[in-house]
């Protein structure tokens, strides 16, 4: 997600479009990205640490974005 202090023009565009479609009550919209990574085998703490590293070096730009890593099981 863009950091709170970083302007998010795309989120602003969505915020502007909602009332035009008749949706009310939304006071702010922030637009971010979601990556779904599939890994082989168990998600061990080591694997998770590696994914954190991926998030920090490539998937996000820590200068302007925050990230969280979450484990989900196969549906």
């Amino acid at each position: 997600m863009p950091k709170p202090e970083i302007l998010d023009p795309q989120g602003k565009a969505v915020l502007g479009a909602l009332p035009r479609l008749g949706f009310g009550g939304v006071t702010d919209v922030r637009q971010g990205k979601r990556f779904e990574l599939e890994v082989a085998g168990e998600v061990t703490p080591e694997v998770l640490a590696e994914v954190e590293k991926m998030a920090e070096t490539l998937l996000s730009n820590p200068v302007i974005e925050n990230y969280t890593v979450r484990v989900e099981q196969d549906a």
Binding site: P2, I6, L7, P9, Q10, K12, A13, N61, V63, I64
Partner: peptide, 17 residues
């Protein structure tokens, strides 16, 4: 250069989109 951290800061979408 910003993504490489050779320069500080970042460049984001124009404010007027």
């Amino acid at each position: 250069l910003c993504e490489s951290h050779l320069l500080p800061g970042a460049l984001i979408r124009n404010d007027h989109r």
